[in-house]
Design a protein around this nucleic acid. Structure first.
Lengths: 112, 112
DNA sequence: TCAATTATTCAAGGATTGTTGAAACATGGA
DNA sequence: TCCATGTTTCAACAATCCTTGAATAATTGA
């Protein structure tokens, strides 16, 4: 993941509603959720959700597919994983202290 | 790390100049860098760097200390580690697929 | 083809964020 | 005390982002 992509991803996640959308889509899994379902769950207008979905898509954190009349969105696990990796390696310079901190704080990083 | 903190951190990292500052401070280590040094390195005005440093501090990604006439900034490894952890666990719901993706992409996450 | 459903695009306005130069503040040395 | 150095604060303006309702587009079933 290059810097431009990372900046865009951070911007996408820095908005409360968008973060909530990403969380919902991660939980929903590969099947995803229709735009309308997301709007209803969050008690937000279709217009507003659409705006944020477009923003998330622009950063590639989510993707869409059409299914009949609905447009289904789902989280991109690849992009999320890349962002974690960017944060650990590129941003944090692969700094051992940060890795150590993550581990000490019980991060789910190392299965062993 | 609570959501408010995470949102603030993502916002802080979503700005090109601020991301560059964090990177420089991570590399600089605990000794940190004076505000003036950062400004000079990046070819930016003191005013502008000060603005971004304040923003980063507000999100707790960096901290400052005075040393004679200089104000020295340094990265908070704890905050960065917490953010990685948030991204993996809270945002990504501890999703095994994301962990797997990070590992497959050669993330520096597991020493073994 | 017409109507209903699902969702996006557009335009306008408000809110927030980023940039700039001038002024102010804090520290240390002459 | 006075000046130089290092940095922040302030005020103004530009740019970007968010929200809203109205209009538009795509799909399906009658």
């Amino acid at each position: 993941m290059d810097e431009r992509q990372a900046l865009s991803s951070f911007a996408a996640l820095s908005q409360e509603r968008r973060l909530a959308i990403v969380r919902a889509l991660v939980v929903a899994g590969p099947e995803g959720l229709a735009a309308g379902v997301i709007a209803e769950r969050m008690g937000v207008s279709a217009t507003n959700v659409s705006f944020h979905l477009k923003e998330l898509e622009r950063s590639r954190l989510i993707s869409q597919r059409r299914e009949s009349r609905s447009i289904i969105y789902s989280a991109s696990y690849e992009a999320l994983a890349d962002l974690v990796k960017f944060l650990m390696e590129d941003c944090c310079a692969g700094h051992p202290i940060i890795r150590k901190n993550v581990e000490e704080r019980g991060g789910l990083l190392c299965p062993g």
